[in-house]
Computed example of a mutant assay.
Amino acid sequence: MDRWKAGKRIGMVLIASAILMLAACGNSDKTSGTKTSDGLEKAKLVTNWFAQPEHGGNYAALKKGFYKEEGIDMTVEPGGPQISSTQIVASGKAEFGYTQAEDILIAREKGIPLVAIGAIFQKSPQVLISHKGAVKDFSDLAGKTVYTAPGSGYWEYIKKKYHLNVKDMAYTGSLSTFIDNKNSVTQGYATSEPFVLDQKGVKTNYLYIHDSGFETYANVIFTTEDVLKNKPKLVESFMKATVKGWNYYRDNSDEINPFLKEKNPDLSLDVMEYGAKTEKDLIFGGDAKEHGFGYMSKERWTKLQEELIDLGIIKKKEDVSKLYTTKYLGE
């Protein structure tokens, strides 16, 4: 399976500034936000890759009609290597998108007022994968050949924290170089690569990036200050249906996965079954156990901001209450 998507997701630190600057100058013609003949309000969500279990709740809400129940004619547009959700939402061509928490901070420093309204993953599925028995702790990464997206914030954090001397290699999306080199480590997602490698007969261990101390939120659902100000009812309705969709997908992924496959034929049902099972605790564990799906805390946003400043990825502190809101999560 081509997993260049993981490189795109966690490599946004390097290219986000350029993309977001383009977004600020982009075409602001809006293609959503109008009413249909039956009175539904058109809206669009742009995800961060092709349809997959990491987007399962939104597709469940679409399939089960939860958005229509809330008065929304919803379009879920898949992302891809040439698609930037931040650019599309910032330019007004969609109301909602998926991105990483880091990109919200980078965008706001560039003057683009994106706001997180929910975090799908309480614990990021991003992992560092090693051959079975080769790595038990982050300190064991010393001396390894490590394939990551250049400039990834989490990797700069880990190298600095654990004082690692490693051979950095650019992740290309191919697993073949990792498979051939027993002393290598590759980035990936716990929801996919370990299963794919096991099917190839490659036994692995992996470390969650989150467990290093870099506790970012993954697959953050975001919008803009403008949408929050001018369409609060739309945001409320969208999030109500989205939360309902994710709770439905948690318990009924086998029903929804064939619908995901219709949207992404290259993804096998076996991989989706593994992904849906693996992601459950990452989404509904942690703070979500107490506060519900999508919860985000001031403490984690503050810590992430401080880490990005320490790494030189951003330079300015901002009141974190402007970065995110849990108002629309139905708490």
Results as ranks from 00 to 15, higher is better:
residue 276 A to S: 14
residue 212 S to W: 14
residue 100 Q to Y: 05
residue 142 A to T: 11
residue 319 D to R: 01
residue 186 T to H: 07
residue 13 V to R: 00
residue 41 E to A: 09
residue 172 T to W: 04
residue 315 K to S: 14
residue 192 S to H: 05
residue 265 P to D: 05
residue 22 L to S: 15
residue 123 K to L: 13
residue 156 E to H: 03
residue 190 A to N: 06
residue 135 V to Q: 10
residue 101 A to N: 08
residue 277 K to M: 05
residue 305 Q to N: 09
residue 161 K to R: 15
residue 217 Y to M: 08
residue 237 S to C: 02
residue 271 V to Y: 07
residue 293 F to V: 05
residue 155 W to R: 00
residue 27 N to P: 01
residue 19 I to G: 00
residue 214 F to A: 07
residue 184 S to T: 02
residue 253 S to E: 01
residue 272 M to Y: 09
residue 298 K to G: 03
residue 184 S to Y: 05
residue 273 E to Y: 07
residue 23 A to V: 13
residue 108 R to L: 06
residue 34 T to R: 12
residue 202 V to E: 10
residue 27 N to L: 01
residue 252 N to K: 10
residue 286 G to F: 07
residue 33 G to M: 10
residue 192 S to P: 00
residue 117 I to E: 09
residue 133 G to Q: 04
residue 153 G to P: 04
residue 123 K to H: 14
residue 13 V to L: 00
residue 166 V to Y: 13
residue 302 T to E: 15
residue 180 D to S: 13
residue 229 K to H: 12
residue 29 D to M: 03
residue 226 D to K: 15
residue 264 N to P: 06
residue 222 F to Y: 13
residue 123 K to P: 08
residue 67 Y to C: 13
residue 284 F to S: 04
residue 163 H to L: 07
residue 268 S to M: 02
residue 139 S to F: 09
residue 62 L to A: 09
residue 109 E to F: 04
residue 148 T to D: 00
residue 231 K to E: 11
residue 208 Y to V: 10
residue 43 A to C: 09
residue 193 E to W: 06
residue 49 W to M: 10
residue 199 Q to C: 02
residue 207 L to R: 10
residue 262 E to I: 09
residue 188 G to L: 01
residue 279 E to K: 12
residue 84 S to I: 13
residue 117 I to Q: 11
residue 245 G to L: 11
residue 54 E to I: 08
residue 42 K to E: 15
residue 273 E to L: 01
residue 78 P to K: 11
residue 209 I to T: 15
residue 151 G to P: 00
residue 233 K to G: 00
residue 132 K to E: 15
residue 182 K to P: 01
residue 166 V to N: 11
residue 258 P to R: 12
residue 291 H to D: 01
residue 272 M to K: 03
residue 193 E to D: 01
residue 104 I to F: 03
residue 321 S to H: 15
residue 149 A to C: 03
residue 319 D to H: 05
residue 38 D to Y: 08
residue 293 F to Q: 02
residue 183 N to F: 02
residue 331 E to A: 05
residue 50 F to N: 09
residue 327 K to I: 02
residue 302 T to P: 04
residue 157 Y to M: 05
residue 58 N to C: 08
residue 65 G to W: 00
residue 290 E to F: 06
residue 232 P to Y: 02
residue 301 W to E: 09
residue 227 V to R: 00
residue 239 M to Q: 03
residue 327 K to N: 02
residue 211 D to G: 09
residue 51 A to I: 08
residue 307 E to G: 00
residue 9 R to G: 06
residue 114 L to M: 11
residue 320 V to S: 07
residue 239 M to C: 03
residue 10 I to G: 03
residue 311 L to P: 04
residue 228 L to N: 05
residue 216 T to W: 04
residue 174 S to P: 05
residue 42 K to H: 12
residue 114 L to Q: 05
residue 133 G to E: 05
residue 226 D to P: 03
residue 7 G to H: 07
residue 208 Y to G: 10
residue 134 A to V: 12
residue 50 F to T: 11
residue 209 I to F: 09
residue 148 T to I: 06
residue 205 N to D: 15
